[in-house]
Computed example of a mutant assay.
Amino acid sequence: MSGPPRRRLPRGLAGAVAVTALLALYVYQIAGRGVAMLREGSPLLVGIGLGVLVIPLLVIGLVAVEFRLAARVQRMADALAAAGELPVDDLPRSPGGRIDRAAADAAFEARRAELDGSPQSWQAWYHLAFAYDAAGDRKRARAALRKASALFTPPVAN
């Protein structure tokens, strides 16, 4: 007798949690120094202490934004996998593992044409993000994933 299939944890989750735990330790230490400066009472130290306390707030905010994006990207990947539309990394590679540049450019052009025909499709933006990644343009890949995430509407569970 078996129940519903167990959902597998994403591959990079353990590493992300470990790095986040180390970052939390760093934030704790920085916040402690900031509070100590505030308690000192000297106007200069209070000003520096307030400035130091901004750092942990920024770090917490940035980490939260990245985890939210990662969760949405995973939901998009799950939706594409269920529809049989998940991108496949089948580009030819050199013996050293580098993607063949001409093949990456050709794949990119196909994905760009798909997006031109359907600019409001989160699926097209998702596929374009992976084409950018294969072409080595990580900055544009992340921007395309953010656009896909903004357009994505999660399927309603029954």
Rank of each mutant, 00 (worst) to 15 (best):
S121M: 05
D133V: 09
R142I: 05
D133A: 13
A134Y: 07
S118I: 12
A129Q: 01
L128E: 08
Q123E: 14
E109G: 12
A124Q: 09
R142Q: 14
D133E: 14
R112E: 08
K139C: 05
A129H: 03
K139G: 09
A110G: 11
G117L: 10
D137K: 03
R138F: 03
W122S: 04
W125N: 02
W125G: 00
D133Y: 13
A135Q: 13
P119Q: 06
W125Y: 08
W125C: 00
R140Q: 05
W125A: 02
Q120C: 09
G136N: 03
E114G: 13
R146T: 03
H127P: 08
R111T: 11
A134E: 15
D137R: 05
A141L: 01
G117Y: 07
A134M: 11
A134G: 15
S118P: 12
Y132F: 10
S118D: 15
A113H: 12
R142Y: 11
P119N: 03
A110S: 13
A141R: 02
R112G: 10
E114A: 15
W125P: 03
W122D: 08
L128A: 08
A141S: 09
K147H: 14
F130C: 09
Y126T: 05
A129P: 05
Y132A: 04
K139S: 12
R112V: 10
S121K: 07
G136I: 03
E114V: 11
A143S: 14
A135C: 10
A110P: 10
E109L: 15
A110L: 12
D137S: 06
G117D: 07
K147S: 08
E109S: 15
Q120Y: 10
L115N: 08
D133C: 11
K139H: 13
R142M: 14
W125T: 00
R112A: 12
G136V: 04
K139F: 08
F130G: 10
L128F: 02
R146E: 03
R146Y: 02
H127E: 12
E109C: 13
A131W: 00
A141Y: 01
F108D: 06
A144P: 06
H127R: 14
F130N: 12
G136R: 01
S121G: 08
A107S: 11
D137H: 07
F108N: 05
R142A: 10
A144N: 00
S118T: 12
L128K: 07
W125V: 00
G136Y: 04
F108G: 06
Y132I: 01
A148N: 02
E109N: 09
W125R: 09
A144V: 02
A107K: 08
A141W: 01
R146Q: 05
R146K: 13
A148D: 02
H127F: 06
Q123P: 14
W122Y: 10
A143M: 12
D116F: 13
L145H: 04
R140M: 00
W122Q: 04
P119T: 06
A148L: 01
A129K: 00
Y126A: 03
F108Y: 11
A144K: 01
P119K: 08
A134I: 08
E114Q: 12
Q123R: 15
A113C: 09
A107F: 10
Y126G: 05
S121E: 06
G136E: 08
R146N: 04
Q123W: 08
P119Y: 03
L145F: 04
